[in-house]
Design a protein around this nucleic acid. Structure first.
Lengths: 354, 354
DNA sequence: GTTAGCACTCACCATGCATGAGTGCTAACA
DNA sequence: TGTTAGCACTCATGCATGGTGAGTGCTAAC
């Protein structure tokens, strides 16, 4: 019915205005700034309705209205428009990426920086999670005495290294044997090692070598199973000072900053994303009391079509959803493409993205 | 003269009190809490003198006094006492370190965490700077196509790896040749490569291999010369909210946090340490406008007697210098010892520390 | 259903005032 | 000459007060 359309037109205007100004929006403001063609009195009536429906909140009796989380939800679900961000991004991003191939850490850092620069929000980027990936190659490098560097290359051509401390000093020959054995045994095998698969072939090795095998396998298990492996990098945490609702509220700022500096919370935040494409979680939807004033927009990036990590932004619920969603979407694609071009190349599945 | 002693007794009491309470200290407070045996009126006279001498500051006419940076300087130089922190630290730290050998990143993270936990201040830890170290070993691992992983082990047994992108796909044989050549040429040679040294021996290689050599050498140069290599890890940045002088001053908090999140500033901060042992820089002494409200206590840690990095804490100028200096001193020694035990072992120089 | 008008609410701001911590100065004392 | 008591003075802080203005809800008229 026509009536409801108008209600939501007004709601839309209020949300847009509040996103821009961070000030409670009054009926006269709507009448003046957005020509809906009805008087402020009528708008007032509609606003009263919208408040009763749970879309608006009045901070105090005679103030204007503020959109509720429910309003933002509606906005995101029904009113959000795609913004063409390519023009902003293409040049900048691609030329930036061009200089950072291979070094994943660096690529992720740059991505976070770009995200912050584009959105003026705190950005979060999780490093690729390699748990569950297949191993392609294993190398063992003797550092000195009982110290050995383990280098693992996955099917996706992600390189991981870790130091192993053996109980005794191995000879180069032993290490070579062990590496050869592992490469033969592990090829095309899931990182879920099962003892039985080894037992049949491990006999060919000396007891000392077998011991090394088990230490290496243990380390690989740790690397490939630990959640801890996938760190979340943050950037632009002080962007929060841009926003008056934080700048004028030390407590809020404090709890935001405390949350954003805790790896465990950030990991949790990203682990609870369900959406396959871009996820928007508004206020309490993100499931973290510490960030109940904030919205989180995130999406997963892929390597060879396999989701391996997440990028996102965190900011006040009053954020420009249209723009931010588009930025995240575009940047996720750019990142996925970049990774496929530089480290991808396995034939595991076809490349998604543009 | 006796007169001056009393003055500085009073100054000492004021500093101790202000460090503890963060409130301007009045003459009556001194009279009551610290029994110097003179009346508040006399103390007032002395305080007026101390103010004229530049040791005290009055925030407004009828308030108590606050120590100036000059006062803290005097305090650190003349009154500071060593605190026995071993009892706090020994068990905790050593058992913590015991689980993190080899993985330098991890060790540095833990160190920062311990520092924050012990001092309730923001801690900074720079990762070991390897520029200028000697190379012991070079390994090349073929990842795929034109991607090669370079692993460099220094005399100090620090392991660094970086990915190299060649212009064509090398054979395993080529990589082996190149690695052998480099290991022979580089052994015991400073990381300052000189073209002439190569020229004589490089002829034995094929043109393709020579190309790889130059790409590897370039990468090594980058690794070993870039300042960027030595990152500064921070921990406990939100500890700053503990301190009322920041908690009640958004601007101050903002600029602290903005500074502490800038790698370039942190690197600069650590690059300007001169002191060989524990360095204490009070307020503007640290040379950074952004941190002119803060003091920085830092010290360098070593591997095989060679200074390779810095650890430190940053906090309000009103900090417990006695305690913090002792913590930094002890922890630097513990870290140096730990590194010598786990990765050290080169005979370059004798081990310092306990 | 829409609008004008009006009384009402309440954050915000400026002002004024009392309070109290702390000072500087002076005069008396040892 | 150094120390102390006394006192007037200063000024941040807290609290009450009143005016202002943005904005509302309600009612009555269109």
């Amino acid at each position: 019915m026509k009536n409801n359309d108008r209600k939501f037109d007004i709601l839309y205007s209020i949300i847009r205005d509040y996103i821009k100004t961070a000030e409670p929006v009054g009926s006269r403001t709507i009448e003046r700034k957005y020509n809906i063609g009805i008087s402020s009195a009528t708008i007032r009536n509609e606003m009263a309705d919208l408040e009763e429906m749970g879309y608006l909140v009045q901070p105090y009796t005679s103030a204007g209205r503020i959109p509720s989380d429910k309003a933002y939800r509606l906005y995101v679900d029904r009113f959000m428009k795609k913004v063409d961000v390519d023009s902003y991004i293409k040049e900048d991003v691609r030329s930036l990426y061009r200089h950072y191939f291979g070094e994943l850490e660096e690529v992720m850092n740059k991505t976070a920086q770009i995200l912050t620069k584009l959105t003026n929000l705190t950005s979060l980027v999780s490093t690729p999670n390699i748990s569950g990936l297949n191993i392609k190659d294993i190398h063992l490098i003797h550092i000195e005495d009982e110290r050995v560097l383990l280098v693992v290359i996955t099917e996706q051509r992600i390189v991981k290294s870790a130091e192993i401390r053996l109980t005794g000093t191995p000879t180069d020959e032993m290490l070579e044997h062990v590496a050869n054995f592992l490469n033969l045994s592990i090829k095309d095998m899931m990182t879920e090692f099962r003892a039985s698969d080894f037992a049949s072939r491990v006999d060919a090795l000396t007891p000392g070598e077998q011991k090394i095998v088990s230490e290496v396998v243990n380390t690989i298990k740790v690397i490939f199973n630990s959640e801890e492996d996938s760190r979340v990098i943050s950037n632009g945490v002080t962007e929060i000072f841009r926003y008056p609702e934080f700048r004028n509220d030390m407590d809020r700022t404090k709890s935001f900053l405390e949350a954003i500096h805790r790896q465990d919370l950030l990991s949790y935040l990203f682990s609870t994303v369900q959406d396959d494409s871009v996820s928007v979680r508004i206020g309490e939807e993100n499931g973290m009391e510490e960030l109940s004033n904030c919205s989180v927009i995130s999406a997963t990036y892929k390597i060879n079509g396999r989701p391996v990590g997440t990028i996102g932004v965190v900011g006040p619920t009053r954020m420009d959803y249209d723009y931010c969603v588009s930025v995240i979407e575009t940047l996720t694609n750019e990142l996925t493409n970049h990774l496929d071009e530089t480290i991808g190349g396995g034939k595991e599945s076809d490349t998604s993205g543009r």
